[in-house]
Amino acid sequence: VKVFRALYTFEPRTPDELYFEEGDIIYITDMSDTNWWKGTSKGRTGLIPSNYVAEQ
């Protein structure tokens, strides 16, 4: 598990995607895809765009 911080707010387009706000901490559990990672924030899990976060 790696810890990342959201650089921007992300509004999901599908139920599989995770909503998060700029500054949120996201725990990444799967980075197997280059563009979409699986992450958890505020008790919810979903896909996030990798270019919206920076490693802490």
Rank of each mutant, 00 (worst) to 15 (best):
R13W: 05
K2R: 15
Y52A: 14
T34Y: 10
E11D: 09
S50G: 04
K42G: 14
F20Y: 02
P49L: 07
K38F: 15
Y52F: 13
I28W: 00
P12Y: 05
I48H: 00
R13G: 10
N51I: 09
A6E: 00
V3W: 12
G46H: 02
A6Y: 03
E17D: 09
L7G: 01
W37D: 00
I25Q: 05
W37C: 03
I28L: 04
F10V: 07
L18W: 01
K2V: 10
Y52Q: 05
V1A: 13
P12N: 06
S50P: 11
R5C: 10
F4N: 00
M31Y: 07
R5W: 10
M31I: 06
E17L: 08
T14F: 12
G39E: 01
I48S: 02
E21R: 10
P15A: 13
V1H: 12
A54M: 14
D33L: 08
I25P: 04
T14G: 13
V3Y: 10
R13H: 10
T45H: 12
G23I: 03
L18R: 00
G39H: 02
R13P: 04
I28E: 00
T29M: 09
T9E: 04
Q56A: 15
W37G: 01
A6V: 03
R44L: 08
T29C: 13
S50T: 07
I26P: 00
K42M: 10
L7D: 01
F4S: 02
D24Q: 08
S41A: 12
D33R: 06
G39F: 02
K2N: 07
F20I: 11
W36G: 01
D30Y: 04
T9F: 05
E21T: 08
Y27T: 08
S32A: 09
E17S: 05
M31L: 06
D24N: 04
T34D: 14
W37H: 02
N35D: 13
D24A: 07
E21Y: 06
F10P: 01
R44K: 13
L18V: 05
E17A: 07
I28R: 00
G39C: 01
I28H: 00
R44Q: 09
Y27I: 13
D24R: 01
F20V: 10
Y52K: 05
Y8D: 04
G46E: 01
G23H: 05
Y52H: 07
K42S: 11
I48A: 03
E55Q: 12
N51V: 09
P15V: 11
G43H: 06
S50I: 06
T9A: 08
T40K: 09
F20G: 01
W36P: 00
P12S: 07
E22Q: 13
L47V: 07
I26R: 00
G39W: 03
N51K: 11
I28Y: 01
F20C: 04
G23C: 07
S50K: 10
W36Q: 03
F4G: 03
F4I: 02
R5Y: 15
E21A: 09
T9Y: 05
R5M: 12
K42C: 11
G43L: 04
T29F: 15
K2S: 08
D24C: 06
R5N: 04
Y52V: 07
A6S: 03
E11L: 15
I26F: 03
F10C: 04
R13C: 12
E22S: 10
T40S: 13
N35P: 07
I48K: 01
S41Q: 05
I25N: 03
S41Y: 09
D16E: 14
G43Y: 03
S41R: 15
E22C: 10
E17K: 08
E11C: 15
D24P: 01
N35V: 14
E22K: 15
G39Y: 02
Q56G: 12
A6K: 01
L7W: 03
G46A: 02
T45Y: 14
L18E: 01
D16N: 12
S32C: 09
S50V: 10
W36I: 05
V1W: 13
T14M: 10
K38I: 15
T9H: 08
V1I: 13
